[in-house]
Design a protein around this nucleic acid. Structure first.
Length: 671
DNA sequence: TTTTCCGTG
């Protein structure tokens, strides 16, 4: 599926041509050359190379299907920008994109991935000394800046999909602005959608050139509601049935905000279309969201059977991450779930918000990839104009900055407030992050990285709290267990609970559950998978566990071991120690999560220590059906009108005082 | 009391 999941359609628009097997190698080379020359960007090859030669910063507006992600790197390579052992870097906000684009470009150049063309993402480095074109995630390039502050090994850096404004893209652009002042020979290319191009150009100053390249797509008719709806889920169902009864054949893609809405629509379509005998053709509704196991996700790529119309009901995963061929109709509900973070309460939330105009354009475009299409927007044209924001708030302005600030400190950037950013983060987010890092002992009272713990925390690719736990585990003798717990906490959707098989799944999951809580339950699952299950997918499937998540956890554990070894910690020695007891492991967790303590109330809710806020155990937690007194939790999130804690483990009150005497000294009595 | 948008090191 990697050749179909990408963030830019220019990777797979022409894979069809490559499936003509059994042709001679020479013909294939000629065919690839011809396909490359048919892409819209090819006409601009010379002009682009001239602009890059003469301007330090170029903003490239490349529409979907223009070929920018795959071709620009090759043009620069062919033109000699990689002589003198320099390379070209091209960043992507998503791992799958870095992998699949690298695979495509390697094929076009005629090399193995990892030779002239390679990629680098967390836990996977597919590059070698001969790599000249390197695709990597934006977070990975930021990591590289830690060891090579001037990016001396690169002659050109391309920041692709910059309009998505991931937090790492924003930080990279801020640092790259400094780097290009010191390196006259470095070129920076920022690839962006139309609406944001001007903002990037003005950030980099008057010498910046803007270039626009047309794309390869078909016209899409936009249809609005004449009156607003107060129930977009029901309206989605009706619109699907209307399209089915009135419009010519072609598959449908409907955008909704979450799993629950998606399941409602899928069920209702099944129910209502069987009673609706107007047409012979049937409807085949398929759900798509990130939490769905992979074997079910890939069903959306199967062509619909004869006389059947496929309806993919998806979250915004289908907006950029997943591209489905053959979509003619798009239904856009006009909303999206966005993550926010409140530094005062330190609580994250997921809130249903109006989509941005930029996202609405992207959604509509999904209908015109292979044929002219039609997009039904479930809001009025007035709302589209007046209510929708132009672009959504950049991630750096709505997220917990503790991790990113730790990394910036490690880059030697002391005064975060003075950074020249496109949109700087609000002061309270920065202050909050500094306070969190100070309470861990990662920063001293002057805001400087502490030599022992802070410097080491910055090296680990984990949440600061979890980094702290892992580093402390060495002293407590439970590093082997903690590496596995940290790995399991870094992957998502370990447990699989299908709607129609829920009881059976819950019975299987119960076999791993322990009364102490979620963290030790995760440890049990890891042990069972690697020892009894021998890492097999059948074993995982039988136990209703997500095989892909478990395999990733194993690879994360191994990578963590390598990071710790690099920090001079003897990992192999520690794994041969006698097994640490349960109390030691929990005490170790408390050393990192001491600020996340709560007490259970008689009604089953929890009161957070400090804020006194009332929260509920999330139904995914083992504490949902168990009782406790004192607990620590690893996540708190507000969903709708309720706040939940997840990753819960029972503790003793005294362990909090023991783990953080200074922190709890001032608060004693308030809990 | 009955379940989570998408990403990243």
């Amino acid at each position: 599926m990697s050749d179909r999941i990408n963030d830019d359609s220019d990777v797979d628009t022409y894979t069809g041509g490559l499936r003509t097997a059994s042709v001679s190698a020479q013909f294939k080379v000629a065919s690839i050359k011809r396909q490359r020359e048919m892409l819209p960007i090819f006409r601009h090859r010379q002009a682009l190379l001239y602009i890059v030669e003469t301007s330090p910063v170029v903003v490239l507006i490349g529409h979907t299907g223009s070929g920018k992600s795959t071709q620009l790197t090759q043009y620069l390579y062919e033109e000699g920008w990689t002589s003198e052992s320099k390379s070209i870097a091209c960043t992507q906000p998503r791992r799958v994109a870095a992998m699949s684009i690298a695979a495509r470009v390697a094929q076009e150049i005629g090399c193995q991935v990892g030779q002239t063309v390679g990629y680098s993402i967390r836990f996977e480095d597919m590059t070698s000394s001969s790599t000249r074109i390197k695709y990597l995630t934006d977070g990975m390039l930021l990591r590289e800046l830690l060891v090579d502050p001037l990016l001396s090994r690169y002659s050109v850096v391309i920041i692709d999909e910059a309009h998505e404004r991931s937090i790492y893209t924003d930080i990279l652009l801020c640092i790259l602005k400094k780097v290009i002042r010191k390196r006259n020979d470095l070129r920076l290319i920022i690839s962006s959608a139309t609406l944001q191009a001007e903002e990037f150009a003005s950030f980099f100053g008057p010498d910046t050139k803007i270039v626009s390249i047309e794309g390869k797509s078909y016209p899409v008719d936009i249809v609005y509601l004449s009156e607003p709806t107060d129930n977009y889920v029901e309206r989605t169902i009706q619109t699907i049935l209307d399209i089915h009864n009135e419009e010519p054949e072609g598959d449908i893609l409907a955008f909704l905000t979450g799993r629950e809405e998606i399941n409602t629509v899928v069920e209702e379509i099944v129910n209502r279309s069987t009673t609706d005998s107007n047409r012979q053709a049937r409807l085949l509704p398929l759900p798509l969201y990130a939490g769905l196991p992979q074997d079910q996700q890939i069903r959306i790529f199967d062509p619909a059977p004869e006389d059947t119309r496929k309806v993919v009901v998806a979250t915004n995963i289908a907006e950029a991450s997943v591209t489905i061929d053959g979509i003619i109709y798009v239904i856009d509900c006009g909303f999206v779930k966005l993550r926010a973070y409140d530094p005062a309460s330190r609580i994250e939330s997921l809130v249903v918000s109006p989509v941005s105009k930029a996202a609405a354009i992207q959604r509509a475009g999904r209908a015109g990839r292979t044929n002219p299409g039609k997009c039904f927007r479930l809001y009025t044209s007035q709302a589209a104009e007046k209510v929708l924001p132009d672009v959504s708030v950049p991630e750096i302005q709505r997220t917990n900055l503790a991790g990113p600030i730790l990394q910036l400190k490690s880059l030697g950037i002391e005064n975060i407030a003075k950074l020249d950013m496109i949109k700087p983060p609000p002061t309270d987010l920065v202050v909050n992050a500094l306070e969190i890092l100070f309470s861990f002992g990662a920063l001293d009272e002057y805001g400087k990285l502490t030599p022992g713990i802070g410097e080491r925390m910055a090296e680990l690719p984990l949440d600061p709290m979890l980094s702290k736990v892992l580093l402390i585990s060495q002293n407590l003798g439970c590093m082997d267990q903690m590496m596995k717990i940290a790995a399991m906490m870094s992957v998502e959707n370990v447990f699989y609970r299908p709607e129609n098989d829920r009881t059976a799944a819950e019975m299987e999951h119960l076999k791993f559950t322990v009364d102490e809580g979620d963290h030790l339950t995760l440890y049990n699952v890891y042990q069972a998978f690697t020892v009894r299950g021998k890492g097999s997918s059948k074993w995982a499937h039988d136990k209703y566990l997500n095989y892909k998540s478990l395999s990733r956890a194993v690879s994360v554990r191994n990578q963590l071991a390598r990071y710790l070894e690099k920090l001079g910690i003897n990992v192999t020695g520690s794994t041969s120690l006698p097994t640490a007891n349960v109390e030691t492991i929990i005490k170790c967790l408390v050393r990192g999560y001491f600020a996340n303590a709560a007490i259970m109330q008689p009604d089953g809710s929890f009161k957070l220590v400090g804020s006194q806020k009332i929260v509920w155990p999330h139904p995914s937690s083992v504490m949902y059906t168990r009782s406790a007194e004192w607990v620590i939790y690893s996540q708190v999130i507000e969903l709708g009108d309720k706040t939940y804690i997840l990753g819960i483990t029972k503790i003793e009150r005294d362990w909090l005082l023991e783990a953080a005497p200074e922190y709890y000294h001032v608060r004693r009595g308030r809990a």
